[in-house]
Computed example of a mutant assay.
Amino acid sequence: MPDWSSDALGALRSTEEVQLATRRRDGTLRNPRVIWVVTSGQRVFIRSTNGRSTAWFRAATATSAGRLQARGAAYDVTFTEVDDEDDLALADAGYRAKYAHYPSIVAHLEEHGPRAATLEVHPA
């Protein structure tokens, strides 16, 4: 998989919310959703606050493709599910560091349901 550019990582690190549009099986984009995104080194993670049953998460795992928009730039992406405890801990730490000013939301994101809906995002 290709690496994130330093510009892309900077945009994802420095913005609080990004737009995520998942791809349908025919390649067209669904309507975007606003989500939070975190980084750990060169890695990028997203998490569904409402767990695995949300429409955007199901779509992301069905096609493994989408687009993130941050700071005026669009990035075609792919997704892989995260289930390794060390990787989940990296995502947890990213949420705690970046969104510390929302402690109750971050605490919720560390609960089983949202944590089980963690994806790593890769540039396409």
Rank of each mutant, 00 (worst) to 15 (best):
D87N: 04
P123Y: 09
L68N: 06
G72V: 13
P103G: 06
P2N: 06
D84C: 08
E110I: 07
A74W: 05
D84A: 15
A100S: 15
L29T: 04
Q42F: 00
E110T: 12
E17Q: 13
A62T: 12
E17D: 11
A21H: 02
K98Y: 11
R96C: 11
R58M: 07
E17M: 11
G27P: 08
T39W: 02
A11V: 03
A21G: 05
F57H: 14
A93H: 12
D26F: 09
N31H: 07
V34N: 05
S6D: 15
T80Q: 13
A74K: 12
V121S: 05
A116T: 15
G51C: 02
W56I: 02
A21L: 03
R13I: 04
P123H: 10
A100V: 05
A91S: 15
E120Q: 15
D76P: 10
A21K: 01
Y95Q: 08
S14A: 14
D26I: 09
R96H: 05
P32A: 11
W36D: 03
A70R: 09
H122G: 08
G66T: 07
A62N: 07
A100E: 10
G72Y: 13
L119W: 05
V44N: 02
H112N: 05
G27S: 10
R23I: 02
L20V: 04
D87Y: 03
G113N: 14
T22E: 07
D92A: 08
P123R: 08
D87T: 15
A8G: 06
Y75H: 14
S104H: 12
E85Q: 13
S40R: 07
A65R: 15
D83Y: 09
G113F: 06
P114W: 08
W36R: 04
E111G: 13
Y95E: 08
G27V: 09
S6M: 04
R58S: 04
A116N: 14
Q19N: 10
Q69C: 12
G10M: 03
M1D: 03
F45T: 01
H122R: 15
W4V: 05
W4L: 06
R33D: 03
R23F: 01
Y99W: 08
G41M: 04
V106H: 06
R25Q: 13
T78S: 15
A62Q: 13
G94L: 09
G41P: 04
R47V: 04
Y75E: 07
V106T: 08
V44F: 02
I35D: 03
S53E: 14
D92Y: 07
D26T: 08
G27H: 09
S5F: 05
S14H: 12
D3W: 00
F45V: 01
E81L: 13
D83R: 14
H122E: 11
L20K: 01
H101A: 14
A97R: 15
W56T: 02
P2I: 01
W56D: 02
R33S: 06
T49E: 10
R33Y: 11
A73R: 15
P123E: 09
T49G: 10
V77P: 03
P32D: 01
A62K: 09
S64K: 12
A107K: 13
Q69G: 08
Y99M: 07
R43I: 00
L90F: 04
E85C: 00
A93E: 14
